[in-house]
Structure formats: structure tokens, C-alpha cells
Computed example of a mutant assay.
Amino acid sequence: MHSRRDFLQKLTATAFTIPLVSTVVPEVFAERTNLYQNEKVLKVALMGLGSYANRVADAMRDCKRAKITGVISGTPSKIKDWQGRFNIPDKNCYNYENFDAIKDNPDIDAVYIITPNALHHPQALRVAAAGKHVICEKPMSINAQEGREMIEVCKKAGVHLLIGYRMHFEANTLEIVRMRREGELGTIRFFQGLSGFKIGDPTQWRLNRELAGGGAMMDIGIYAINGARYMVGEEPIWVTAQEVKTDPVKFREGVDETITFQLGFPSGAIASCLSTYNMNYLDKFYLNGDKGFAEMQPSTGYGPIRSWTHKGRLDLPHVTHQTTQMDEMAAIILDGKKAIIPVDGEEGWKDMVIIDAIFESIRTGKKEEITYV
């Protein structure tokens, strides 16, 4: 079985190499040193112990500010295995029926929800009701309405809601965003985002509309949407979209196989993007301005990210994305740090607003305005 996780790992591991022209070390590396000055550690329970949770857990072994202290799973054998690997006591282990009891557990500050997409909304509401901070994998929900409710419930409960946008802390990404913000690329005119791979096992939950809320768009296409926003530095105001389906058996009604979509921004910049479960080797961002360009390929895989601009190669030092993400999120929750590229609930909600508009454009065959209300 081939999954997105396998694809991203293999793609980045076998990325082609171009001779290094120049290396720029962004300020983010200096800033990360400050994370370790405060010894307070975020105590995290992982909910859903699948392949990505294992990746997060392994990465967190190197965290300075975040530690796994609990687990939540519907599979007792997984819990037993994780207890042995991460020295988790029985009192910090829960299932999906009883995890509301974390309310009375001081060993858990936050819960990282890594379950199928359709479960994010109800589980986040329960975690917030228990008074714990919510870290939720993307997409945060299956539509914008659910995302908005998650934001409001967490706000009312006085807890943080953060979305697992690991690329928002990645060095190459941050350097290109810095260049764009400081005018080194000039006026931004165009963005291209290509996100896709050929999915395997047709029985997996990612091809189940009830659990996934869609198909490729919810899984891999959201990288192109989110990337368009932070690379261009604006929120899109219109979208046109087209769907192509070559295998209606594997990709049933409501499960998208391939979608191309175009975004328009207030400045006049445009984006052209592709989301697919039927083509391999698609992990590329390209940003064009009237003074320069930036390109990344791979752009969102697990690393190392390869990047270059009109000034030469970047290819900044690789740190495991989930390690950086969890340390930075700990600083956001514990210290009130502000992320350079936001990872809060509003950030996740805007992606859902755009996804809703993409699906609506496919339904109507028309250009759809995007409104963030």
C-alpha cells in the first residue's frame, strides 16, 4: 500500500541535486535558540496512533519544549506498544470513549489530533471542553462551517487551536517568504503549486468520503492552497476549478481524483494549481515577481526541501519538520510566541473556505467569489 506519507518520504529522499550557488541562513535559526531558554515543556497526548503519529512521535524525541506524555487510541495493542516505546503510564492512556477524563489529568496540556479528517471536528470540541489545548492535523475539518465552530469553541474554552502546518516553520519556506516580504522578488505576479501522487490501496480511509470529506484535495491539494496564500502573501478572492476523473470505481462520488484550480488575488496576482491522486512526482512551488523568482522542488515533502531563486541555490539546513513544528507550537502555547506564518485556527479555516469554493466552482462550472465570513 502506498500512502501520502510514503510518497513524500521517497520523493524528498531521491530529489535531484543542482550545484550549490549560494546559501542563506534565515533568522529563524537564531530565533529557535531562544526557544530553549525557557525550560517549561508542553505535555502532549497524541490521538490516533497511525503512521503519521509514529512520525510525529519519533520526531518529538529531539524536541526541547514538547514531550509525549499520553496517548488516545481505539486499539489496545497500539496503546501497549506505545507505552513501552515512550514510557507512558497507564493513567495517561485513553480510548475514544473515555478521553474526556483528560480534564483531570495534569500530565497532559495539549492533545494532537491525528485521526481521519471527519473526526477532527467532534474530537476537537471534546478536547476543548476538557480544557486542553488542541493541535489538529490538516485539514482542520471537512468544511468551513465545522472549522468555524472549532475556533469558537476553543476560544470560549480559553484554549489554543493550532493546525499542523509543519511547512510554516521550515527554513527554505521562511527564507522565501522573507524575500517576498522585503521586496526582493518585486511585485508578485504568479504562483504555481503542484501537489499529487498516485494513491494505492482503494480501501483506505482517504478514499472514503465519510471519513475523508473528499479525496486528493483534502489530503495533498491543501498544500497548494495553503502555499499559494503564504507565498503570494494575500488571500484569494476568486476561484475557478475543474475536475477530471479517470477511475470512477476507485474514486467514487464525492471523492476527487484530480482537480485543477486557479486563484485570483486582490493585487491582480494569479495562481495555477493541481491536486491529484493519480500522478506521481508532483511536489513543486514556483513564485514569480517582476524582480525575481523562487522555486521549490520538493516543496512540501518531509525533507530535505530543495529551493533556489534568481540569486542562486538556498537548500538550507534540514531539521526534521515535526521536531521544529512541535517546539515552535510549544513556544506559541507556553510563551505566547507569534508564528511568522500563522498556524492558528483562522489559518486552517481560510483553507477550508477556499476548498468549499473550489468544490462549488466544480459544481456550477463558474468562477466563484471567495468571502471570509
Rank of each mutant, 00 (worst) to 15 (best):
Thr276Asn: 05
Ala130His: 03
Met279Thr: 13
Val24Lys: 14
Thr14Glu: 09
Ala30Ser: 13
Glu184His: 01
Tyr96Val: 03
Leu20Asp: 15
Asn87Asp: 15
Ile176Tyr: 09
Val41Arg: 12
His133Thr: 06
Lys132Met: 04
Arg209Pro: 01
Val25Leu: 15
Tyr112Leu: 14
Phe197Pro: 01
His160Tyr: 07
Gly48Ala: 04
Leu162Asn: 02
Ala216Asp: 10
Ser361Leu: 08
Leu185Met: 11
Gln204Glu: 06
Thr371Met: 11
Asp62Phe: 02
Ile72Ala: 11
Gly215Asp: 07
Ser267Pro: 00
Asn98Ile: 03
Lys40Val: 09
Cys136Ala: 09
Met218Gln: 14
Phe86Thr: 03
Lys138Arg: 14
Ser51Ile: 12
His133Gln: 07
Asn95Gln: 03
Ile114Val: 15
Ala271Thr: 11
Ala128Tyr: 00
Glu346Leu: 12
Gly131Cys: 01
Ala124His: 01
Arg65Ser: 14
Ile333Ala: 02
Asn288Val: 13
Thr187Gln: 14
Val159Arg: 06
Glu39Val: 06
Glu152Ala: 12
Leu161Asp: 09
Asp290His: 09
Phe285Leu: 03
His168Glu: 04
Thr69Trp: 06
Val41Gly: 00
Thr364Glu: 10
Glu175Thr: 06
Gln83Val: 02
Val24Ser: 15
Gly147Lys: 09
Lys245Ser: 13
Arg206Asp: 13
Gln262Val: 10
Ser22Val: 02
Thr187Ser: 11
Ala101Arg: 10
Ser3Val: 01
Arg181Asp: 15
Met218Thr: 13
Trp82Phe: 08
Asp327Ile: 06
Arg313Glu: 12
Gly289Gln: 10
Phe190Ser: 14
Thr115Asn: 13
Ile135Gln: 10
Ile222Thr: 07
Gly186Ser: 03
Gln262Glu: 14
Ile188Glu: 06
Lys132Thr: 05
Ala101Ser: 13
Pro19Asp: 13
Asp256Gly: 02
Pro76Asn: 05
Glu210Val: 07
Arg126Asn: 10
His133Arg: 04
Ile108Phe: 03
Ala59Thr: 04
Lys10Arg: 14
Ile163Tyr: 04
Ile358His: 10
Leu316Gln: 15
Leu282Trp: 05
Ile362Tyr: 07
Trp308Leu: 10
Phe359Arg: 08
Ile341His: 12
Met140Arg: 04
Lys366Thr: 00
Asp107Ser: 11
Ile225Ala: 01
Lys80Arg: 09
Ser51Leu: 12
Lys367Ile: 00
Pro202Ser: 01
Gly268Trp: 03
Leu282Thr: 06
Ser22Trp: 00
Arg166His: 15
His168Asp: 12
Ala339Ile: 05
Lys245Trp: 03
Lys40Cys: 05
